[in-house]
Design a protein around this nucleic acid. Sequence first.
DNA 1: GTCTATATTGTGATAGAC
DNA 2: GTCTATCACAATATAGAC
Lengths: 194, 194
Amino acid sequence: MNTDTELSPSALRIADVAQALVQQVGYNGFSFEHISQAVGMRKASIHHHFPTKVVLGVAVVKRYTQQFEDALGQIDRQFSAPHQRLLAYADLFETTFGHDHRLCVCGMLGAESSSLDEAVNTEVRRFFELNLSWLQRAFQDGQRSGVWHQRHSAQDLAETLLSLLEGAMLVGRSVSQPMGPRRTCDVFLSGVTA
Amino acid sequence: MNTDTELSPSALRIADVAQALVQQVGYNGFSFEHISQAVGMRKASIHHHFPTKVVLGVAVVKRYTQQFEDALGQIDRQFSAPHQRLLAYADLFETTFGHDHRLCVCGMLGAESSSLDEAVNTEVRRFFELNLSWLQRAFQDGQRSGVWHQRHSAQDLAETLLSLLEGAMLVGRSVSQPMGPRRTCDVFLSGVTA
DNA sequence: GTCTATATTGTGATAGAC
DNA sequence: GTCTATCACAATATAGAC
């Protein structure tokens, strides 16, 4: 299940660098040569671990999704209150963004999706569906316990919050004093409260 | 002032195609060859009108910002109620997204910003600042007239809504039945209402 | 303004030695 | 697993004829 277990130490370093590059410059913005320089190996060696760029891209997204899934599990175990869970969720994005204004891997790849291989797009979709169903459950819990109003479906609230967090990182890259994902989440949630 | 006036008919067609390509596959996702094929001219002819890709990119963003500015002026003349103005604003994004799931030009370029020339990034920033100040004014009007609560500053509400709309397009590319920018805006505004 | 032709560099990918 | 060497092709860009 854990993709990392299958990766050799070198492959791990490559995947780390590739992920950072995706978050910084996007899939179409980096080459095997960039990875080569960052990781201190020749291009041919990168190809030994990941034969094609598509294979590398898919591996990066799968690993990222796995890490995210683990983080969501941790949140569930740590917090029971829906509001706390959502704030912890927003903090995942805040932490990523705080790291040199990196984007969410799948936010970046979602933007580029029209030019990507379907194998990559499929994994990106999986990431979003996973996030949406987790968020939907959190909103359902909040609505059932009466903490939030029920003007909108939990499904709509989930997609709205996810869009907000992804967008906050995107916009935050181009404004001088960005609020960041966490604060935009506060603004949104305070409006949802009953 | 109007950049279009300075562009010859051929240059206009090129800019149109380039803008569509930016919205679909991003700045790093298209080449002069793609433009060449779409517009029916040779690569060298494209270079005659726009000597470098950066010059072309800057021209596309300037024109896009100008068009957006015009649209905002029209909204101001057509609607006086802040709520109506914001819904019309969201419809600008909805229309763009409805067109083959195209992204906002500056949303796409904002994501790619780390790999772009500063001349392009500067124009992208201008676009966002323009939008934020327009949104801020709309929220201020709504708060002064008592339509909305004042839990958050108009500035924060502006950046939150902008992030939401940009993010809704991004996420909308990778989910099966996207809400679209307009509906996410409805969800957000209903929470802001006093 | 548009074309052909070409220069130059970058890119994804492979072959084969060590 | 990593390397050197190389391929085929795509990218941005320029020179110069028409």
